[in-house]
């Protein structure tokens, strides 16, 4: 089994609970979920104050986000038609923009991740996203909002929940720089070069693997952005840079201290012909995306947005070893549970 940075730093790998009550009544779980509840309240207050409309996310639909590395979608028999549980509601976020300029969901997602991700401490088969979309925004606007949102939520927890952080052994000093914002930015190309220099084999044409992300993450004390992922590493809705073919106008937000990726986002492709072409480039059958392409033909607004993994964000804030510890009813890839 692969060892994570948390383990190499002497943190004990937690064992997955045998029953839901054993997990839920544990004091660290209760403290973690209290912090999570506060994070959600802070998120809603922050975004609402910025003029965002909260929508309730769809749970099923004829198609869902295909841009998910190696993970399986879950089929639902919808009166004889094959529907999917949402892996992310990205397509619906775009579809909502004619009605509301700025929206967010707290959205449940299900992704049957490859079995080997069960040991990463970061992958859950069922998780939630703080899912944000802004009409007529550039990638940089979305990054700035993500930065302010993370800083705000962390600041509120640090100020308002010192008891729970102490109970969890989370050092509040770890967040001194975080609450200031001003997260660093690096490109995928630079991150790849760093990893190769550190002896980690990273394919320059692919997503940074979770071990690579963790290595980069462990080197810093503040969250940072990785921008400009190569085409071929993400879904069709991440817009390609018109001035730099093959480069996507997207970003990941990486937490420090080895916690790894917190969020992904991008400027969105919305042009009909470009969407169809990009669907083919990502191996998709456009026929499957009927309702979405009909909408795109009529005109989807330009936008940028992101999704923050709530359990990962909670894990980082509370300093837990594994993301499943930030879920009341955790589902690990390949592990049967409540």
């Amino acid at each position: 089994m692969t060892s994570t940075i948390a383990e190499s730093h002497g943190r004990v790998a937690p064992s997955f609970p045998a029953s839901p009550d054993q997990h839920l009544i544990a004091e660290p779980t209760r403290a973690t979920l209290r912090v999570q509840s506060r994070m959600l309240a802070a998120t809603r207050a922050f975004l609402t104050a910025q003029g965002f409309q909260e929508l309730l996310p769809p749970v099923i639909g004829p198609v869902t986000d295909p841009g998910i590395r190696g993970s399986k979608q879950v089929d639902v028999d919808f009166y004889g038609h094959k529907y999917k549980l949402m892996t992310s509601a990205i397509l619906y976020k775009q579809a909502s923009l004619p009605a509301f300029d700025k929206i967010f969901y707290i959205a449940p997602n299900v992704r049957l991740e490859p079995l080997e991700t069960a040991v990463t401490h970061r992958h859950l088969a069922e998780f939630h996203q703080i899912d944000v979309e802004i009409r007529d925004a550039r990638r940089e606007d979305a990054m700035e909002l993500a930065e302010r949102l993370v800083a705000h939520v962390v600041d509120e927890v640090v100020r308002e929940m010192p008891g729970d952080l102490e109970l969890l052994g989370r050092d509040r000093d770890a967040f001194r720089e975080v609450v200031q914002g001003a997260f660093d930015r690096t490109t995928h190309k630079e991150a790849t070069a760093d990893l190769v220099a550190l002896g980690h084999p990273q394919d320059p044409g692919a997503e940074i693997d979770w071990e690579g992300e963790e290595i980069l993450s462990a080197k810093t004390s503040r969250p940072f952005f990785v921008v400009d992922y190569p085409k071929g590493s993400r879904g069709f809705y991440d817009q390609e840079d018109t001035d730099r073919p093959g480069v996507l106008r997207n970003f990941d937000l990486i937490a420090p201290e080895g916690y790894g990726e917190l969020a992904s986002g991008s400027e969105r492709e919305h042009d009909y012909a470009a969407l169809v072409t990009r669907m083919r480039e990502t191996g998709e059958n456009p026929a499957k995306y009927g309702w979405y392409l009909d909408l795109a033909r009529r005109g989807i607004p330009a936008s940028s947005g992101f999704g923050i993994g709530l359990e990962r964000f909670t894990r980082y804030v509370t300093g837990r070893t594994a993301a499943w510890e930030a879920s009341a009813y955790p589902k690990l890839p390949g592990v049967t549970s409540a």
Partner: peptide, 13 residues
């Protein structure tokens, strides 16, 4: 080209 790159990205094993 991109479909092959996506295969390598999504299924590294």
């Amino acid at each position: 080209r991109q479909q092959i790159r996506l295969m390598r990205n999504n299924f590294p094993r």
